[in-house]
Simulated scan of single mutants.
Amino acid sequence: MSTRTTGSGVAASITASVLFAVIFLLAGLLPGWGAEEILGWRIVLTLSMLGATFPFLATARAEWRALVTRVRRRPTLILLGVLATMLVGVQLWLFLWAPLNDMAMAVSFGYFLMPLTMVLAGRVFFADRLSNLRKLAVAAAALGVAHEAFSAGGLQWPTLLVCLGYPIYFVLRRKIGFDNLAAFSAELMLMLPAAVFFILSGPHGLGADDGGMLSGAGIPEGTWGVAAIGVLGGVSMATYLLASKWLPLSLFGLLGYVEPVLLVVVSWILGETLGWAALLTYGPILLALLFLSLDGRRRDPKLLVRALENAQ
């Protein structure tokens, strides 16, 4: 993998993390909107944006042709594609549901753990070797997880869903060769019927008291926020999936630490708090991420520096 490709992957990963944090904040500031309705609009608007740009991108057209050819040769890939769609659909829903239901911090903790579970996924599914520093990282993370589980009576289900679900999704996509934007747009197309149902049955849908989105009462409060989520959702997922394609799985997981830090900040803005006891949870997790960072610099101390320079 070339340094230029790695640099593009680093830039894409950081950009995606910032945009995800903005979406997380916007979702928490939309009273009266259900997570399912927001998800429906996000899918529709994201798919519309991709559909408007793909015909003009030679790379996207080539990816679509390759995807169709592979599916024709192996129709069973459709079933695996449906499974990938279900996995990412649940994650997209959870990301919008959590800030509306005081679960933003639980989801943030899941994203803190995800770089570690991605490292483990790379070891199990792609035979990535675990150096001593990576083993220390896993051990430190285990301490943080153990404290959280003990103090809270177990890890909350949103945390587990994020830190276990996303690695399965990315491993599956890479295994079946669906790690590109064409495959993601196909996943959105599979989710489109559910998206339309969520919109029509939501608080501002056909059964709404105000007559829906185009009623004489005007545009409901928060409409522009939902529209922004849809547009930013397309850009963020596109850059995130490109990063997953351009970067080694371990480096991709390491750069994932940017997003949970931003999500914790957003959770604080939305009113959730962290007590001093949280230091015993997040302290070991941050130490684990430090070990991963040192391991990356030890393996190729100039790689990340060159990548960041090329990304600028």
Rank of each mutant, 00 (worst) to 15 (best):
A311Y: 09
P158N: 08
A146T: 07
F112A: 10
F197E: 06
L19I: 12
A62D: 10
D295F: 01
P220G: 05
T85V: 12
L274V: 11
P220Y: 04
W97Y: 12
V305F: 06
V196I: 15
V10Y: 10
L279F: 02
G211L: 01
S215A: 04
L263Q: 04
R70E: 13
Q156F: 08
V196Q: 02
G177Y: 07
R123W: 12
V10S: 12
S151P: 03
E148H: 02
L286M: 13
N132C: 05
L50A: 14
A186I: 03
G233T: 11
V68D: 02
V44F: 12
R42E: 02
F252D: 01
G177S: 05
T5G: 04
A288L: 10
N310T: 11
R61L: 15
N101I: 14
D128G: 06
T69W: 13
I219L: 01
R4W: 08
Y282H: 02
M114C: 08
A142V: 12
V231A: 13
G144D: 00
I78G: 09
L113G: 00
L303V: 06
G234L: 15
L80M: 06
A182W: 01
N132S: 11
A238K: 03
V305N: 10
L160C: 11
R297P: 09
F170Q: 06
G153A: 10
L263M: 08
A139S: 15
R74T: 12
L143F: 05
S185N: 15
K302P: 05
G218W: 12
S48M: 09
R61K: 07
E259V: 04
A66D: 07
A142Y: 13
F170H: 14
N310W: 14
L286V: 06
L255W: 08
R297Q: 07
A288K: 00
G34E: 13
T281K: 00
N180T: 02
G275K: 14
L100W: 09
A183R: 00
P158M: 09
M118I: 09
D210G: 15
P260Y: 03
R306G: 08
K135N: 08
V235K: 07
G144A: 06
P248I: 15
M237W: 07
S185R: 03
T76A: 05
I43Q: 02
A52D: 15
L116I: 12
E148C: 07
E36L: 06
P301I: 11
A141D: 00
F198H: 06
G283L: 00
G28I: 01
W224N: 05
L155K: 00
F126D: 14
S215C: 15
A141H: 00
L294I: 14
L190E: 13
R174V: 10
L130R: 08
L251H: 01
M191R: 09
L94A: 08
T273S: 11
L241E: 10
L294N: 06
M114F: 14
N101D: 12
T239K: 11
L270H: 06
R123H: 14
P284N: 06
R297G: 01
G9T: 01
G51E: 14
